[in-house]
């Protein structure tokens, strides 16, 4: 089947089979920035925005995206790259496999929450797992990033 979608501002036709998950459909179409870590909605590395709302694309049926707007990390390149400056300055990026999904979520959080507390940050991002970093560096980077963007 064919899906009419808008991906990162560009109208595209996505070919997929009924029952395919959005994550696989996107990767097959060349959107390799969407990673797949668990396939069961438990790790967050496949996070994308569907009509501006973060969803795990591995547990979203591709058909659900028909006629809707999909944003991957490449569609948020400018913002993502601003956050990346803070993340790499902290040395908080390790293998990086979790980072596109995790960064999508950080950017969504920034839009949603004004001055989140440490607890709120941990909670908002709790579905985004990272096996490398111990999360401490993420937290340092997020705090500095949010602070800088408030200024």
């Amino acid at each position: 089947m064919n899906l009419n979608v808008n991906i990162n501002g560009v109208a595209r036709v996505l070919a997929c089979n009924a029952g395919d998950m959005l994550c696989d459909a996107l990767r097959s179409a060349g959107y390799t920035e969407v990673k797949k870590g668990c396939g069961t909605g438990n790790c967050g590395v496949c996070t994308i925005l569907l009509d501006g709302v973060p969803v795990p694309s591995c547990s979203t049926i591709a058909g659900k995206a028909d006629g809707r707007e999909i944003t991957t990390i490449r569609g948020l390149e400018k913002e993502a790259s601003e956050f990346a400056d803070f993340l790499v300055a902290e040395g908080a990026d390790q293998c990086g496999f979790c980072t596109p999904g995790f960064t999508m979520m950080v950017l969504a959080m920034k839009r949603e929450l004004v001055s989140p507390s440490e607890g709120e940050i941990r909670h908002y991002l709790s579905g985004n797992l990272c096996r490398c970093s111990g999360y401490e560096g993420h937290l340092r980077a997020i705090k500095k990033y949010l602070e800088a963007s408030r200024e």
Binding site: R27, T32, E33, V34, K35, T72, I73, R74, E77, A80, S81, F83, A84, D85, L87, V88, A89, G91, D93, G96, F97, T99, P100, T103
Partner: peptide
Amino acid sequence: HSIPKIEGKGLVTGRPAYTDD
């Protein structure tokens, strides 16, 4: 010195990097 990881920014912004990419 804490020099940022060379590939850091590329990975955050989702550039093709891993085997399956």
